[in-house]
Amino acid sequence: MMIKQDFEAAQSIDTVWDFFGDIPQVAASLPGAELTDEIGEDHYQGTVAIRLGPIKLEFDGEAKIKERNDADKTIVVEATGADKKGRGQAALQLVASLTPSPGGTKVDIALDLQVSGAAAQYGRGMISDVTSVLLTDFATNMQNRLQAAQSGLDPNQVASLKPASGLSIGLRAMRMALVRVFRRFFLPYRPRTR
């Protein structure tokens, strides 16, 4: 499943690019993610915990920077993980590309996500909603960290949004889902005959 999202950062493209080069910083901006080990160059071990209503998924896995193109300002990350209790697996390829924009830098994220197991049963709609929420949080956290760094503060002292907590993610994703249901009934379809 391909999920695309973009957002603006107020900083210059080089600052943002440097940020993406610092994997521990990137990981710290991702809600629920934690790096546990660096097992090689551009190759990390870590965990991602997502709590969604009654289900808590904790993925153990690896992330690897597959490609880093300084000229195009494009980075490709591949990650795989398995839930600790054997309830599912996830694999993803994330392509982030930066382009200058009037306000600073535009960040385009293309996330190709394969989920199996319990999480997959939530359905494509729910997974893409949850992912969108996570990416939005990521963007906010990244901004906070970049601003902190600019102001000479330690980014790690800046409170990130809490690790992917059930209530907020669940509610926000549900809001998106409900909007879709609303659209189904009231927006696109106009029956011709009754």
Binding site: V115, S116, A120, Q121, G123, M126, Y189, P191
Partner: peptide, 21 residues
């Protein structure tokens, strides 16, 4: 999907018509 995940496991993905449609 390719891994045998059933992606029609809820009414968001397994579509049933309502009286509206």
């Amino acid at each position: 999907d390719e891994q045998g995940n059933c992606v029609g496991s809820n009414y968001m993905d397994y579509l049933l018509p309502t009286a509206w449609e």
